[in-house]
Design a protein around this nucleic acid. Structure first.
Lengths: 138, 138
DNA sequence: ATCATTGTAATCAAAAAGGTTACAACGATT
DNA sequence: AATCGTTGTAACCTTTTTGATTACAATGAT
């Protein structure tokens, strides 16, 4: 199991936008050639990032801009924008209610699983796009 | 993206073994009927848990036992036993080295990604099998 | 009106997940 | 040594997801 590359690609997109938005027109083709994936994949991800209020995409004329300051965009924002699953964990659906363990397994695990997901999300919230963009050596 | 149900099923297996190992013979069929999945799936997971040194499975005669005290088995041990991916995140393979962002994206993100995975794993290590088994109401 | 660009639908291939059948190997019991 | 329930594993199948690609209507500045 791994996260799809949507998260790392979306992050790559946002770093590019942050670094280049005032220098060149950041089109899906520009982004696609930096990431080396198909431009349609970029456009679909831009749609998700736009829905999440992270970027503004200029239809027709082209070009993408940050919709808010890079200091206010975290890895958690990006993750939530592109990974739509509510829960990280996939429970087996039908544990046997006749069995004491099957009957209680959800009650036993749900809180622990929430805590694990929260720990991950808290750490994601620690990194901002501004910090990432600082690491780009032009 | 979600983790496969291997993790929750494997945890269910271990809770069952912990609770029942001294009462009944814990076979793959017994476990399968508590979880309500195919016995072969249980046997495959038991193989992984056995490889990881968490359980001992009696071939031939049948039955599964914990290989160490329930206090010494954590959710992280279970997770690592059944999810073999080294990294949680899947990087796009070929960022463009001609682009300042493409060239640096790994250097920028690798540490952050490690921190996120570490945060998740640390939280997983906080819960022991013994704690989970306490929650079973027989 | 033109033209580069975006938004999106329609496909397609590859990989992964989950399930199932089948059967050889095992090992205690008789 | 034959039996019998069980484990270990191979083979196969379906469904879902991911990632990729082509195609084209809609957009909006010029």
């Amino acid at each position: 199991m791994q996260f799809s590359s949507r998260f790392t690609i979306a992050t790559h997109i946002l770093v590019c936008v942050c670094v280049f938005e005032n220098e060149v027109k950041v089109t899906s083709n520009f982004l696609a050639s930096s990431i080396q994936v198909n431009p349609v994949i970029v456009r679909n991800l831009l749609g998700l990032l736009s829905d999440a209020g992270l970027v503004e995409v200029k239809a027709g004329v082209g070009g993408t801009f940050l919709a808010k300051p890079a200091e206010d965009i975290t890895l958690l924002d990006i993750f939530k924008a592109v990974e739509k699953e509510e829960s990280l964990f996939h429970f087996h659906e039908n544990p046997n209610p006749q069995c004491p363990v099957g009957k209680n397994i959800h009650a036993i695990m749900d809180k622990r699983i929430d805590d694990i997901q929260s720990a991950m999300e808290s750490q994601m919230a620690q990194t901002t796009l501004a910090q990432l963009a600082e690491g780009v050596d032009k």
